[in-house]
Amino acid sequence: MGIFGGTISNLERGLAFSATKHKAIAQNIANVDTPNYKAKSVSFEEIFSEVKRNGISANRTEEKHFNFQMRGNSPGVFNYANFRYSHNGNGVDMDKEQANLATNQIYYNALVDRVSGKLNTLQTVIRGGS
Results as ranks from 00 to 15, higher is better:
113 D>K: 09
96 K>M: 15
106 I>G: 04
95 D>T: 09
67 N>P: 01
94 M>R: 09
92 V>T: 08
32 V>R: 12
119 L>G: 09
109 N>S: 03
119 L>R: 11
104 N>E: 07
117 G>C: 07
61 T>P: 01
50 E>A: 13
31 N>L: 00
74 S>P: 08
58 A>R: 12
121 T>E: 10
47 I>Q: 03
106 I>V: 13
51 V>I: 09
105 Q>E: 10
86 S>P: 02
124 T>E: 13
97 E>P: 02
93 D>E: 10
73 N>I: 10
127 R>E: 11
111 L>W: 05
102 A>E: 03
127 R>C: 02
67 N>K: 12
80 Y>G: 03
108 Y>L: 06
77 V>M: 06
46 E>G: 15
101 L>G: 05
108 Y>S: 06
100 N>C: 05
42 V>T: 12
58 A>F: 08
78 F>K: 00
68 F>P: 07
114 R>L: 10
71 R>L: 13
110 A>R: 11
49 S>W: 11
78 F>Y: 14
31 N>Y: 04
105 Q>W: 04
102 A>Q: 12
68 F>R: 14
74 S>Q: 15
102 A>R: 03
96 K>A: 04
68 F>W: 08
63 E>C: 08
38 K>M: 07
45 E>V: 08
114 R>G: 05
75 P>S: 01
98 Q>H: 11
104 N>F: 13
54 N>P: 02
41 S>T: 14
39 A>G: 06
95 D>C: 03
113 D>C: 02
53 R>D: 08
46 E>C: 07
127 R>V: 01
90 N>Q: 09
33 D>F: 05
48 F>C: 03
89 G>W: 09
73 N>Q: 13
36 N>T: 14
127 R>Y: 00
49 S>L: 07
